[in-house]
Protein backbone atom coordinates (compact mmCIF):
# COMPACT_ATOMS: atom_id res chain seq x y z
CA UNK A 1 0.00 0.00 0.00
CA UNK A 2 1.30 3.42 -0.74
CA UNK A 3 1.34 6.33 1.65
CA UNK A 4 -1.91 7.85 0.44
CA UNK A 5 -3.81 4.67 1.12
CA UNK A 6 -2.25 4.27 4.57
CA UNK A 7 -2.98 7.88 5.53
CA UNK A 8 -6.56 7.53 4.31
CA UNK A 9 -6.94 4.29 6.24
CA UNK A 10 -5.69 5.86 9.45
CA UNK A 11 -7.79 8.98 9.00
CA UNK A 12 -10.94 7.00 8.41
CA UNK A 13 -9.84 4.50 11.06
CA UNK A 14 -10.10 7.27 13.63
CA UNK A 15 -13.59 7.97 12.35
CA UNK A 16 -14.45 4.25 12.49
CA UNK A 17 -13.13 4.11 16.05
CA UNK A 18 -15.44 6.78 17.44
CA UNK A 19 -18.70 4.83 17.79
CA UNK A 20 -16.73 2.10 19.56
CA UNK A 21 -14.90 4.64 21.72
CA UNK A 22 -18.04 6.39 22.99
CA UNK A 23 -19.74 3.11 23.78
CA UNK A 24 -16.62 1.74 25.48
CA UNK A 25 -16.16 4.87 27.62
CA UNK A 26 -19.73 4.71 28.84
CA UNK A 27 -19.43 1.01 29.51
CA UNK A 28 -16.18 1.55 31.42
CA UNK A 29 -17.88 3.93 33.86
CA UNK A 30 -20.90 1.65 34.16
CA UNK A 31 -18.76 -1.43 34.82
CA UNK A 32 -16.60 0.46 37.30
CA UNK A 33 -19.77 0.89 39.34
CA UNK A 34 -20.56 -2.81 38.94
CA UNK A 35 -23.19 -2.68 36.21
CA UNK A 36 -22.35 -4.84 33.20
CA UNK A 37 -24.35 -3.89 30.13
CA UNK A 38 -23.89 -6.34 27.26
CA UNK A 39 -26.81 -4.61 25.56
CA UNK A 40 -24.91 -1.54 24.35
CA UNK A 41 -25.27 -2.89 20.81
CA UNK A 42 -29.02 -2.38 21.14
CA UNK A 43 -28.62 1.09 22.64
CA UNK A 44 -26.30 2.09 19.79
CA UNK A 45 -28.91 0.97 17.28
CA UNK A 46 -31.55 3.09 18.96
CA UNK A 47 -29.11 6.02 19.07
CA UNK A 48 -28.30 5.61 15.40
CA UNK A 49 -31.96 5.47 14.46
CA UNK A 50 -33.08 8.39 16.63
CA UNK A 51 -30.21 10.55 15.37
CA UNK A 52 -31.24 9.94 11.77
CA UNK A 53 -34.95 10.35 12.43
CA UNK A 54 -34.70 13.57 14.41
CA UNK A 55 -31.98 15.11 12.23
CA UNK A 56 -34.12 14.57 9.18
CA UNK A 57 -37.17 16.02 10.86
CA UNK A 58 -35.48 19.04 12.41
CA UNK A 59 -32.73 19.54 9.88
CA UNK A 60 -30.11 19.68 12.60
CA UNK A 61 -27.70 16.86 13.42
CA UNK A 62 -27.26 18.39 16.89
CA UNK A 63 -30.90 17.94 17.79
CA UNK A 64 -30.60 14.43 16.42
CA UNK A 65 -27.62 13.87 18.69
CA UNK A 66 -29.63 15.07 21.69
CA UNK A 67 -32.40 12.65 20.77
CA UNK A 68 -29.87 9.81 20.61
CA UNK A 69 -28.55 10.78 24.04
CA UNK A 70 -32.08 10.86 25.45
CA UNK A 71 -32.82 7.44 23.95
CA UNK A 72 -29.55 6.09 25.34
CA UNK A 73 -30.32 7.38 28.81
CA UNK A 74 -33.80 5.86 28.66
CA UNK A 75 -32.46 2.43 27.71
CA UNK A 76 -29.57 2.71 30.17
CA UNK A 77 -32.06 3.47 32.92
CA UNK A 78 -34.26 0.59 31.78
CA UNK A 79 -31.28 -1.75 32.13
CA UNK A 80 -30.38 -0.13 35.44
CA UNK A 81 -33.89 -0.51 36.74
CA UNK A 82 -33.93 -4.18 35.77
CA UNK A 83 -30.58 -5.09 37.26
CA UNK A 84 -30.14 -2.62 40.13
CA UNK A 85 -33.67 -2.32 41.45
CA UNK A 86 -35.21 -5.63 40.38
CA UNK A 87 -31.85 -7.52 40.62
CA UNK A 88 -32.45 -9.29 37.31
CA UNK A 89 -29.41 -11.13 35.96
CA UNK A 90 -27.28 -8.53 34.18
CA UNK A 91 -26.42 -10.71 31.19
CA UNK A 92 -30.05 -11.63 30.59
CA UNK A 93 -31.21 -8.03 30.79
CA UNK A 94 -28.36 -6.95 28.51
CA UNK A 95 -29.20 -9.52 25.86
CA UNK A 96 -32.84 -8.48 26.02
CA UNK A 97 -31.64 -4.94 25.36
CA UNK A 98 -29.79 -6.05 22.21
CA UNK A 99 -32.93 -7.65 20.85
CA UNK A 100 -35.12 -4.75 21.95
CA UNK A 101 -32.82 -2.19 20.35
CA UNK A 102 -32.61 -4.07 17.07
CA UNK A 103 -36.36 -4.58 16.93
CA UNK A 104 -37.37 -1.08 17.92
CA UNK A 105 -34.90 0.67 15.62
CA UNK A 106 -35.75 -1.52 12.63
CA UNK A 107 -39.46 -1.23 13.18
CA UNK A 108 -39.29 2.49 13.87
CA UNK A 109 -37.26 3.03 10.74
CA UNK A 110 -39.83 1.32 8.54
CA UNK A 111 -42.66 3.09 10.31
CA UNK A 112 -41.25 6.60 10.29
CA UNK A 113 -39.10 6.69 7.20
CA UNK A 114 -40.75 3.88 5.18
CA UNK A 115 -37.46 2.03 5.27
CA UNK A 116 -36.25 4.09 2.35
CA UNK A 117 -33.07 6.06 1.89
CA UNK A 118 -33.15 9.61 3.22
CA UNK A 119 -30.79 12.51 2.95
CA UNK A 120 -29.40 13.01 6.40
CA UNK A 121 -28.07 16.41 7.44
CA UNK A 122 -24.97 14.82 8.95
CA UNK A 123 -21.98 16.22 10.80
CA UNK A 124 -19.37 17.66 8.53
CA UNK A 125 -15.69 17.20 8.90
CA UNK A 126 -13.95 20.20 10.43
CA UNK A 127 -11.94 22.33 8.08
CA UNK A 128 -9.18 24.03 9.99
CA UNK A 129 -7.83 25.69 6.87
CA UNK A 130 -4.09 25.40 6.60
CA UNK A 131 -3.80 22.72 9.30
CA UNK A 132 -6.24 20.42 7.58
CA UNK A 133 -4.29 20.61 4.35
CA UNK A 134 -0.96 19.60 5.85
CA UNK A 135 0.32 16.32 4.41
CA UNK A 136 -0.29 13.19 6.55
CA UNK A 137 -1.13 15.00 9.82
CA UNK A 138 -3.72 17.17 8.08
CA UNK A 139 -6.14 14.40 7.18
CA UNK A 140 -5.29 12.31 10.26
CA UNK A 141 -5.37 14.91 13.02
CA UNK A 142 -7.11 18.03 11.76
CA UNK A 143 -9.90 16.84 9.50
CA UNK A 144 -12.01 14.79 11.86
CA UNK A 145 -15.55 15.43 12.95
CA UNK A 146 -16.01 17.73 15.92
CA UNK A 147 -17.43 14.82 17.92
CA UNK A 148 -14.22 12.86 17.42
CA UNK A 149 -12.29 15.49 19.34
CA UNK A 150 -14.97 15.41 22.02
CA UNK A 151 -14.56 11.65 22.28
CA UNK A 152 -10.77 11.81 22.63
CA UNK A 153 -11.01 14.58 25.24
CA UNK A 154 -13.69 12.62 27.08
CA UNK A 155 -11.38 9.60 27.37
CA UNK A 156 -8.79 11.69 29.20
CA UNK A 157 -11.41 13.50 31.27
CA UNK A 158 -13.02 10.25 32.42
CA UNK A 159 -9.60 8.82 33.21
CA UNK A 160 -8.94 11.79 35.45
CA UNK A 161 -12.40 11.60 36.97
CA UNK A 162 -12.07 7.94 37.91
CA UNK A 163 -8.59 8.25 39.36
CA UNK A 164 -8.42 11.66 40.91
CA UNK A 165 -11.83 12.83 42.06
CA UNK A 166 -14.21 12.04 44.86
CA UNK A 167 -16.81 11.06 42.29
CA UNK A 168 -14.45 8.52 40.74
CA UNK A 169 -13.58 7.19 44.17
CA UNK A 170 -17.27 6.72 44.89
CA UNK A 171 -17.91 4.92 41.62
CA UNK A 172 -14.92 2.60 42.04
CA UNK A 173 -15.83 1.77 45.63
CA UNK A 174 -19.38 0.92 44.58
CA UNK A 175 -18.10 -1.56 42.00
CA UNK A 176 -15.32 -2.92 44.17
CA UNK A 177 -16.64 -3.20 47.75
CA UNK A 178 -20.22 -1.93 47.92
CA UNK A 179 -20.49 -2.97 51.58
CA UNK A 180 -17.71 -0.55 52.47
CA UNK A 181 -19.21 2.18 50.32
CA UNK A 182 -22.61 1.68 51.92
CA UNK A 183 -21.03 1.86 55.35
CA UNK A 184 -19.52 5.19 54.30
CA UNK A 185 -23.04 6.46 53.61
CA UNK A 186 -23.09 6.07 49.83
CA UNK A 187 -26.38 5.05 48.19
CA UNK A 188 -25.16 2.09 46.15
CA UNK A 189 -28.23 1.68 43.96
CA UNK A 190 -28.43 5.37 43.12
CA UNK A 191 -24.79 5.51 42.00
CA UNK A 192 -25.27 2.38 39.91
CA UNK A 193 -28.42 3.74 38.25
CA UNK A 194 -26.65 6.98 37.37
CA UNK A 195 -23.67 5.12 35.92
CA UNK A 196 -25.96 2.84 33.90
CA UNK A 197 -27.73 5.93 32.53
CA UNK A 198 -24.39 7.57 31.73
CA UNK A 199 -23.24 4.41 29.93
CA UNK A 200 -26.46 4.41 27.95
CA UNK A 201 -26.09 8.06 26.96
CA UNK A 202 -22.58 7.47 25.59
CA UNK A 203 -23.71 4.36 23.70
CA UNK A 204 -26.44 6.56 22.22
CA UNK A 205 -23.80 9.08 21.11
CA UNK A 206 -21.80 6.22 19.61
CA UNK A 207 -24.81 5.16 17.58
CA UNK A 208 -25.49 8.75 16.50
CA UNK A 209 -21.89 9.16 15.36
CA UNK A 210 -22.21 6.01 13.28
CA UNK A 211 -25.35 7.10 11.45
CA UNK A 212 -24.77 10.84 11.11
CA UNK A 213 -20.98 11.31 11.01
CA UNK A 214 -19.30 8.09 9.90
CA UNK A 215 -22.09 7.13 7.53
CA UNK A 216 -25.10 9.15 6.53
CA UNK A 217 -28.25 7.21 7.01
CA UNK A 218 -29.78 4.30 8.85
CA UNK A 219 -29.69 0.66 7.84
CA UNK A 220 -31.19 -2.11 9.94
CA UNK A 221 -28.61 -3.67 12.27
CA UNK A 222 -26.05 -1.16 11.07
CA UNK A 223 -24.09 -1.31 14.33
CA UNK A 224 -23.16 -4.87 13.33
CA UNK A 225 -21.18 -5.95 16.36
CA UNK A 226 -19.55 -2.64 17.29
CA UNK A 227 -21.31 -2.77 20.65
CA UNK A 228 -19.65 -6.07 21.40
CA UNK A 229 -16.28 -4.80 20.19
CA UNK A 230 -16.73 -1.94 22.66
CA UNK A 231 -17.25 -4.49 25.45
CA UNK A 232 -14.01 -6.15 24.38
CA UNK A 233 -12.27 -2.75 24.46
CA UNK A 234 -13.34 -2.21 28.07
CA UNK A 235 -11.84 -5.50 29.18
CA UNK A 236 -8.74 -5.15 27.05
CA UNK A 237 -8.07 -1.66 28.38
CA UNK A 238 -8.39 -3.03 31.93
CA UNK A 239 -11.22 -0.63 32.63
CA UNK A 240 -9.13 2.46 31.88
CA UNK A 241 -10.73 5.13 29.68
CA UNK A 242 -7.47 6.19 28.01
CA UNK A 243 -6.70 2.55 27.36
CA UNK A 244 -10.15 2.21 25.81
CA UNK A 245 -9.23 5.08 23.46
CA UNK A 246 -6.23 3.18 22.13
CA UNK A 247 -8.11 -0.10 21.94
CA UNK A 248 -10.92 1.57 20.00
CA UNK A 249 -8.41 3.20 17.65
CA UNK A 250 -6.80 -0.18 16.99
CA UNK A 251 -10.16 -1.71 16.08
CA UNK A 252 -11.19 1.32 14.05
CA UNK A 253 -8.03 1.34 12.00
CA UNK A 254 -8.24 -2.42 11.50
CA UNK A 255 -11.79 -1.93 10.27
CA UNK A 256 -10.82 0.87 7.92
CA UNK A 257 -7.89 -1.17 6.64
CA UNK A 258 -9.99 -4.23 5.94
CA UNK A 259 -12.40 -2.19 3.83
CA UNK A 260 -9.50 -1.05 1.66
CA UNK A 261 -7.91 -4.48 1.56
CA UNK A 262 -11.13 -5.94 0.18
CA UNK A 263 -10.58 -3.76 -2.86
CA UNK A 264 -6.85 -4.42 -3.07
CA UNK A 265 -7.10 -8.19 -2.90
CA UNK A 266 -10.22 -9.17 -4.84
CA UNK A 267 -9.08 -12.82 -5.01
CA UNK A 268 -9.54 -13.32 -1.28
CA UNK A 269 -13.18 -13.74 -0.19
CA UNK A 270 -14.24 -10.43 1.34
CA UNK A 271 -15.63 -12.19 4.40
CA UNK A 272 -12.09 -12.92 5.49
CA UNK A 273 -11.50 -9.18 5.79
CA UNK A 274 -14.78 -8.41 7.49
CA UNK A 275 -13.97 -10.67 10.38
CA UNK A 276 -10.57 -9.03 10.84
CA UNK A 277 -11.58 -6.63 13.68
CA UNK A 278 -13.31 -9.47 15.49
CA UNK A 279 -10.29 -11.71 15.16
CA UNK A 280 -8.17 -8.90 16.59
CA UNK A 281 -10.64 -8.56 19.46
CA UNK A 282 -10.43 -12.28 20.18
CA UNK A 283 -6.65 -12.32 20.03
CA UNK A 284 -6.47 -9.23 22.24
CA UNK A 285 -8.52 -11.03 24.87
CA UNK A 286 -6.06 -13.89 25.00
CA UNK A 287 -3.10 -11.59 25.66
CA UNK A 288 -1.87 -11.43 29.25
CA UNK A 289 -3.34 -7.99 29.85
CA UNK A 290 -6.73 -9.13 28.65
CA UNK A 291 -7.23 -11.41 31.63
CA UNK A 292 -6.87 -8.62 34.17
CA UNK A 293 -9.35 -8.54 37.01
CA UNK A 294 -12.29 -6.19 36.62
CA UNK A 295 -14.32 -4.55 39.37
CA UNK A 296 -14.85 -7.22 42.03
CA UNK A 297 -18.61 -6.87 42.18
CA UNK A 298 -19.17 -6.53 38.43
CA UNK A 299 -22.50 -8.06 37.52
CA UNK A 300 -23.57 -8.73 41.10
CA UNK A 301 -26.55 -6.99 42.66
CA UNK A 302 -26.08 -5.31 46.02
CA UNK A 303 -28.31 -6.52 48.81
CA UNK A 304 -28.29 -4.73 52.12
CA UNK A 305 -27.43 -6.67 55.26
Amino acid sequence: MDQVVVVAAIASGIRFAMPILFAALGETVSEKAGVLNVGIEGIMLIGAFLAVLISVQTGSPWVGLLAAIAGGIALGLLHGWMVVVLKVDQIVSGIALVVLGAGLSGFGYRLALDGGAVRVPGFRQLDLGLLSHLPVVGPVLFSQHFLAYVGIALAFALGFMLRRTGLGLTIRAVGETPEAAAAAGIEIDRVRLCCAAFGGSLAGIGGAFLSTAQLAGFVENMVSGRGFIALACVVFSRWRPVGALFAALAFGIADAAQVRMQALYPDIPYQAFIILPFVIALLAMTMPGGAARGPAQLGRPFRRG
Binding site: L169, R172, A184, I186
Partner: peptide, 24 residues
Protein backbone atom coordinates in the same frame (compact mmCIF):
# COMPACT_ATOMS: atom_id res chain seq x y z
CA UNK B 1 -15.60 -6.79 60.11
CA UNK B 2 -13.97 -3.83 58.52
CA UNK B 3 -15.74 -1.87 55.81
CA UNK B 4 -12.70 -1.06 53.69
CA UNK B 5 -11.98 -1.19 49.97
CA UNK B 6 -8.85 -3.33 49.61
CA UNK B 7 -7.94 -1.89 46.20
CA UNK B 8 -7.83 1.66 47.55
CA UNK B 9 -5.06 3.42 49.42
CA UNK B 10 -5.49 4.43 53.03
CA UNK B 11 -6.22 8.00 51.94
CA UNK B 12 -8.78 6.91 49.36
CA UNK B 13 -10.61 4.80 51.91
CA UNK B 14 -10.55 7.76 54.20
CA UNK B 15 -12.02 10.06 51.56
CA UNK B 16 -14.76 7.63 50.60
CA UNK B 17 -18.13 9.07 51.46
CA UNK B 18 -16.71 12.18 53.08
CA UNK B 19 -14.76 13.92 50.30
CA UNK B 20 -16.56 16.23 47.86
CA UNK B 21 -17.18 14.84 44.39
CA UNK B 22 -14.61 17.08 42.75
CA UNK B 23 -10.85 16.77 42.56
CA UNK B 24 -9.28 15.06 45.56
Amino acid sequence: HYALVPDFTVAENFALGTAPLGRL
